[in-house]
Write a protein that binds this DNA or RNA. Structure first.
Lengths: 206, 206
DNA sequence: GTCTATAATTTGATAGAC
DNA sequence: GTCTATCAAATTATAGAC
């Protein structure tokens, strides 16, 4: 399959355009002609790089997942306090909304999961698995005493809350909706944090 | 606009089919011919009842919202303890997943909000407003001392978490994902509840 | 690699007979 | 109210010239 190693400039621009389209309108909300127009080529040229829509969708989701995970970094990195990793995680979602002004691919493709070709569906599924694993690791560090199952449940809760928060904020056309949920999540999920604007970490209370 | 008072049998069957299609595949994932096949008529007959796709989508969302709110009941009903109302609320979402095996319309249409005609978008937005208002009222009853803003934030959190939980559970093809999030939400949002299977209410501890 | 041209299908929507 | 027939546009995708 294409793009296993290094995408060309045109391929990158096609992936960028397709990602933006999907994150706004969903998998069935864009066409090859749309992408062609965005990039400034013809739709046949898009097909040259990505033979089918299924191929393009799969590559878009795969690149998105890899980039997201890369930005998150290693959840076991000793230099990073676990609550800072959680903070970074939540801020990552906030950037999707505020900077990109788009949905998360996992959220929008996950919602229409039944409508997706199997390879795209598999990539969406994998995004979820990867994030739950990453978060589970962070929660284990944050609270080493608790059961593994509890860490996973908390991971699930955070991922679900953030995806839902993106949807609610976009439906209400109010970014603050996301921010209020994010604050509450920081408060709930990381007991070291207060809900005031105090990002400093107390020694080790509670 | 149609359906203001009483839909005919055929109109109801069209709305049922359209709702099921949208909740699985999204707004752009169904056609008038799909609906016609589901109902057993021709696509021109569907257009007779709902002239445009925008009309159909709007009516589907409007009926869904009204039905959901009706099932929730009055959030101020004195006979219902507020934590029971929250429990009912969460169980309502669980039924969408387990019985219907579909998304919530707010979740799937909210995700692709940019791709929707304005009238449909307005109905989606209204669903969110109605639910946040309903939940806010319940949280106010549950904790009369807290700020109004806090109640609204909690309402936002619950709605977002449940929508995200539906997405995560469906993407992972594992209903238990939803159940684990739901349990955690009951624990977090209603301090009277333990996370054990104990639905009885203690007198007034904490 | 990108183009023109086009095939094959599907889409939302309408006209008019019954 | 449902049908047949049809339209115009859009869709995914391919063939072949440059």
């Amino acid at each position: 399959m294409a793009l296993q190693y290094s995408p060309t400039v045109t391929q990158t621009r096609i992936l960028d355009a397709a990602e933006a389209r999907i994150r706004r309108y969903g998998y069935h909300g864009f066409s090859f002609r749309d992408i062609a127009t965005d990039v400034g080529i013809r739709s046949a040229s898009v097909h040259y790089h990505f033979p089918t829509k299924e191929d393009l969708g799969t590559q878009v989701m795969r690149r998105y997942s890899a980039r997201f995970l890369h930005r998150l970094g290693d959840p076991k990195e000793a230099a990073q306090a676990p609550h800072n990793l959680l903070k970074r995680y939540i801020e990552g979602f906030q950037k999707l909304l505020v900077e990109d002004k788009m949905m998360c691919l996992y959220g929008i493709l996950g919602a229409e999961i039944c409508a997706l070709p199997a390879p795209v569906r598999d990539e969406v599924k994998r995004f979820g698995e990867d994030h739950i694993k990453w978060l589970k690791t962070v929660y284990r560090r944050l609270n080493p005493g608790q059961k593994k199952k509890t860490s996973k449940t908390k991971a699930l809760c955070l991922l679900a809350s953030l995806e839902g928060a993106l949807i609610a904020a976009r439906a209400a056309e109010d970014t603050k909706y996301f921010e209020r949920i994010a604050s509450e999540l920081m408060r709930t999920h990381s007991p070291l944090y207060t809900n005031k604007k105090n990002n400093k970490v107390p020694s080790a209370s509670r």
